[in-house]
Design a protein around this nucleic acid. Structure first.
Lengths: 240, 240
DNA sequence: TGTCAATTAAATATCGAAATTATTTGATTG
DNA sequence: CAATCAAATAATTTCGATATTTAATTGACA
């Protein structure tokens, strides 16, 4: 293989477009995407046979992906009873938001305390990139823009990335996934009219300005507002 | 099923005593135990063939267990390169202890705020049970007592169980596992002479007395002391 | 002697079918 | 008619073998 090809492969990898070196990882990514996007609804039974047909692979990669997802909390597993998409309920949402605020408050404070120049620059960069793409792919009706979703996630992760604990960072990312799923479930119902860009900018500026209390306060409000929108747009989620 | 039964099941589940209805789950439990006990040292390569011989099962259950463990952070996985026991280092230990203190401080405060009568009684009970078994199976030289380890874990989980977030509880349990592994690695070196019972009693009393600040302070000191002992007894862990 | 390429060996990842376990269906009995 | 048990059916879990990929070894050439 030519060196140029290698570099190209690497680049696309980093861009998140070329998913996986192994079938199991590829299925993991696709399944994860389908759950997060709501394409596979909460409580849905995940039969081996069905998934094999859907993703055109054998038994083992499917099973491997499901096991990984169950550890992420996106899928539930019961011995001898197989797998399901994790249930979603209003109570779970409240618990999720609460936990997320607890953990991210710590992470953000630590990041602001310990973050170095690289962290600041990465944060500014993340915001800039996010500001350059529209939330919806379409102008009139809302269509999820995968690029925005990706950059949005990257921004929030960049905020916390200097917290000094890979454990905490991983947990925040996991809760982020969960919250994203609820957001997508809500989007099906209501078009989100809200200028999140200003909120993100305010957070970015408070963080780079090393104003921890202000930044945390903004972040909490941000999540509380998001949760409010989700609450309003959905009375109850299917949980079976 | 009565609510009480559900809670009880949860508790014993978290204590890790169930017999495992599937081969994969059984291997998961045994492998987890072997890693936590230090029987499989940090960085150890986990070959399919070796593990098949060790646990006398086929290919699939091994892989499944490894995938679950890698999500728990006890095993690392790299596409096309297989699995290894997670590395251990002094830096990791510090990060772990730090994170644990952050998370458990929140969890304990919430538990003390929200805990009901059942929580209090479960806590008193957990302490009582812990107080009835010796830490070492043998009198003269230290021998890990699995019963004590189990009850110790159960006590700490009971402390936090009313925190109101299954997410947070799960994360604390996970960090608990990691810390336990370091404890076992340290035990190989030095006999732990320390009256932990008094510390646990003080925590229990502060918690049931709804004195959050005191309880948190005791818990943090408890972990800091444990970390200190581990630090002293080990200069550096093998990481390859 | 050192480096690189080709080959061999080893290990991982994947498949398809067999064995095990849960669920449904239907018949029999109290 | 409800309830229980047994057979049939469906789904999950597991095995042994095969295909792919990575690592190690060998040998040729500079």
């Amino acid at each position: 293989m030519a060196p140029d090809d290698e570099v190209l492969t690497r680049m696309t990898d980093l861009a998140g477009q070329e998913p996986a070196g192994t079938l199991a990882s590829s299925v993991y990514d696709r399944l994860r995407g389908d759950i997060l996007s709501g394409s596979l609804p909460p409580g849905e039974k995940l039969r081996t046979e069905t998934l094999r047909a859907r993703y055109q692979v054998g038994n083992s990669p499917i099973r491997e992906a499901l096991n990984r997802l169950s550890a992420d909390g996106l899928v539930t597993r019961e011995d001898q009873k197989g797998f399901r998409v994790a249930a979603a309920s209003r109570a779970d949402l409240e618990e999720l938001v609460k936990t997320r605020c607890w953990l991210e408050a710590i992470a953000l404070r630590e990041a602001i305390t310990n973050g170095d120049n690289d962290w600041e620059e990465e944060l500014v960069l993340s915001f800039h990139r996010l500001s350059r793409v529209r939330r919806s792919s379409s102008e009139d009706h809302y269509t999820v823009n995968p690029e925005w979703e990706r950059l949005h996630r990257a921004f929030h992760l960049a905020l916390l990335s200097a917290c000094g604990s890979r454990w905490l960072l991983q947990y925040c990312a996991q809760l982020n996934d969960q919250a994203d799923r609820y957001r997508q479930l809500a989007i099906v119902v209501s078009y989100p009219r809200r200028n999140e860009l200003d909120e993100h900018e305010a957070m970015m500026k408070a963080a780079t300005g090393r104003n921890a209390d202000e930044a945390i306060s903004l972040l909490m409000a941000h999540y509380e507002r998001t949760a409010g929108i989700i609450r309003e747009s959905i009375s109850e989620f299917a949980a079976s």
